[in-house]
Amino acid sequence: MPLRVTLAEDSALLREGLVSILGRFGHDIVDAVADADSLTEAVQARRPDLIITDVRMPPGNANDGLRAAVRLRHRLPRLPVLVLSQYVDQSYAAQLLDSDDGAGVGYLLKDRVGAVAEFNSAVEQVAAGETVIDPEVVRQLMRRRSDPRRRLTARELEVLALMAQGRSNDMIGRQLHVTDAAVNKHIGNIFCKLDLPVATDGHRRVLAVLAYLRS
């Protein structure tokens, strides 16, 4: 199903690039703006299915895009937001995950846009209310929390990282070249070893893992 997307990105070059990718997959760009204030106005006027925004944008050229997105999520609950940045850090992810329970949130490094098909599936996941977090942020979180490293096997750590990024069992199995049954077994072990509440539903599971890593 085509999505109605509002896009905010101050670099014209990249804005064009994103418009072509989304158009290519049949999505409908309702607005493509270049600053945080226009983003807020456009979203309120046209209620898109999803917003994609850069973190650093005019007018302040600081984290204006991110702040606008968080504000919009407070005003319009369940509004899916995919945030892109030239540089990722877990403190920005925290602001997004804390807004409206972290459902329908994506936070990715801009580099990921080049892997066009994967990027599009991230867009669709977020629009469906799931949570997608950049591997770089997950790596940061896993370094910060050193105890999983001691309790989990190397393979279980890989699975944990992929779960935290918001990958489904299917995607995890394909990436690690293992069967669904094996993925399920690893996930069961992880939840048991880390003493996490078992959640089968995709988005709730991501949030449980992220909450564990952030605590």
Binding site: L14, I21, D111, V113, G114, F119
Partner: peptide
């Protein structure tokens, strides 16, 4: 990034 998008 734009170059990467074009290649993609």
């Amino acid at each position: 990034v734009a170059l990467s998008v074009t290649l993609g």
